[in-house]
């Protein structure tokens, strides 16, 4: 399934480059980091970024060596970029630890050949729960980034390369139904749920974290159900337990249910369309890779 890689010459370099959703995601996440650094003046020292990327790449390389699988730097790079975007800490050691924990979870916590947790989500939650010196800043993106994010994310949908757009859109759909429903029940003006839906952190989560094809259910119906579940749990944590990072916690809580959903609603396992080569060009995957 889902194999529509164009490796012919007609597509040109750019479409070859974006044949793999990971390449697209890496470019978008990097742009967001630059936006955060230069426009929103995030406190993000470069050595934290380097430390986190180094940690994820090294962990992946070592783990791949042990299980004798070809090394592909793109997935760990995405995890590192997501961590950099969402995890705030003043300590480079914690940045590195987050990277190691994120990638290690991928190899250690598995079920039927599929890892359970989204690595960045796992690293993010564990670090912020265990260490006081690491935290999630849900407000750091403010509201103004809405258009930029939507454009980028929709770009992903339009190019059809972000294969899990269905989970992103369902999550936002269910979540907005809940916050608008809450506002109607409370008699609040609609400005409030609109404001809540504009949260930059929510949009980044929807388009760049929960959409990870490796940890979402295999079937489309399963993904929609999963999105509904994450939205409901996230909404409850946010509004009944008053934790602003509700949606991020919801993903880690709901992830263990994915194997069950896959069992009830089986479908083909997702495989990344291309494999990484050092020659610069990606080519079609022949064997399942991760």
């Amino acid at each position: 399934m889902d194999q529509e890689v164009r490796t012919g010459t007609r597509g040109g370099r750019l479409s070859r480059l974006f044949a793999d959703p990971r390449n697209y995601q890496i470019s978008v996440l990097s742009s967001l980091i630059l936006l955060g650094l230069f426009h929103y003046s995030f406190h993000l020292p470069w050595w934290h970024v380097v430390g986190c990327i180094g940690a994820t790449l090294t962990t992946q390389a070592v783990a791949d060596k042990i299980i004798k699988r070809p090394f592909d730097p793109r997935s760990p790079l995405i995890s590192a970029l997501s961590l950099t975007l969402l995890l705030r800490t003043g300590s480079v050691t914690l940045s590195i630890a987050a990277g190691v924990i994120a990638i290690a979870s991928k190899y250690l916590i598995r079920w039927h050949g599929k890892h359970i947790f989204n690595p960045a989500n796992f690293g993010l939650v564990i670090m912020s729960l265990v260490f006081g010196a690491a935290w999630i800043s849900p407000g750091q993106w403010g509201q103004a980034t809405l258009f930029a994010l939507l454009l980028l994310a929709l770009g992903g949908v339009v190019t059809g390369k972000a294969k899990r757009w269905d989970v992103s859109l369902s999550l936002l759909g269910f979540y907005s139904a809940l916050v608008f429903g809450r506002a109607l029940w409370l008699g609040d003006p609609l400005g409030i749920p609109v404001h809540q839906m504009q949260s930059g952190a929510l949009l980044i989560f929807a388009f760049f974290m929960i959409s990870d094809p490796k940890t979402t259910p295999d079937s489309r119906l399963g993904r929609v159900l999963f999105a509904a579940l994450v939205a409901t749990v996230g909404f409850s944590i946010q509004f009944a337990m008053y934790n602003a990072a509700g949606i991020i916690l919801a993903l880690i809580l709901c992830a263990p249910i994915v194997p069950l959903i896959d069992r009830l609603l089986p479908a083909g396992r997702y495989q990344w369309p291309t494999m990484f080569t050092l020659k610069g060009d990606s080519h079609e995957t022949l064997t399942p890779a991760e």
Binding site: H43, R88, G90, G132, A134, W135, S137, G191, H195
Partner: peptide, 17 residues
């Protein structure tokens, strides 16, 4: 009222800078 439709919600972080 327009730019701050919602009540202010806070969070304590471990940031001691």
């Amino acid at each position: 009222a327009k730019s701050f439709p919602e009540d202010l919600k806070f969070k304590t972080t471990g940031n001691t800078e």
